[in-house]
């Protein structure tokens, strides 16, 4: 079942991943079925995914994240919001993010 992210939701990296920055690239190892499998399940985020990931601090709503990025890149907030929802939806689908308990 697809999980739809909400603009007023707060999302944080799941406890079921290990994320490390290696040579400027963020790599994510999901701990699927109790295994951190870097042979078959090692992911990297593209630049867009990384820009959003870096703002998911457990405090900012997605609307706030989009506003920050819109200011940072001088882009229309509505366009950025749509992209942020797309990115977070994909990361939720891969169980790399969860909704913050107090979000």
């Amino acid at each position: 079942m697809a999980v739809e992210p909400q603009l007023d939701g707060v999302y944080v990296p799941s406890d079921d991943i290990v994320a490390r920055e290696i040579e400027g690239e963020l790599i994510i190892v999901p701990l699927v079925a109790g295994v951190g499998d870097i042979e078959d399940e090692l992911y990297t985020l593209n630049e867009t995914g990384r820009a959003v990931w870096d703002h998911l601090d457990g405090k900012n709503t997605l609307r706030a994240v989009a506003a920050l990025l819109a200011r940072e890149y001088d882009a229309p907030a509505a366009e950025i919001e749509a992209d942020v929802l797309g990115i977070v939806g994909e990361l939720l689908g891969r169980r790399m993010l969860i909704e913050a308990a107090n979000g």
Partner: peptide
């Protein structure tokens, strides 16, 4: 400046070819 979000998904990709040094492998391990 072009916003990074002009890039469309998928936003994650399998890092099949990512070379890991011994220290990086140890860190992940």
């Amino acid at each position: 400046m072009r916003p990074p979000t002009a890039e469309k998904g998928p936003y994650t990709s399998l890092g099949d070819e990512l070379p890991l040094s011994g220290a990086e492998l140890a860190d992940l391990m």
